[in-house]
Amino acid sequence: MRTDPVSLASGAAIAALGALVLLDSSGALDVSLGWIAVALSAALGVIVLVSGFAKDDSGRQD
């Protein structure tokens, strides 16, 4: 079965967000609200971007 790029990219982005929360909660990193906003926007951007490309690819195959 073909790898689903949307699930793969979303999983990586969400895991990265989780790592950021983990580092902040454990005190290893002090993440400000501004930086978390940037990280969340970047994660959502990656998900939307990959979804768009994936849709485009499937459209070309039709």
Binding site: P5, V6, S7, G11, A13, I14, A15, G18, V21, S25
Partner: peptide
């Protein structure tokens, strides 16, 4: 409970990435 919640988020991300090879779980 920041650390447990962070671990849940990482686990969800990993689960998503792992299911990508079997069709994904969007």
């Amino acid at each position: 409970w920041g650390i447990p919640v962070a671990i849940v988020v990482i686990a969800l991300g990993a689960l998503l990435a792992l299911t990508a090879r079997s069709g994904g779980a969007r």
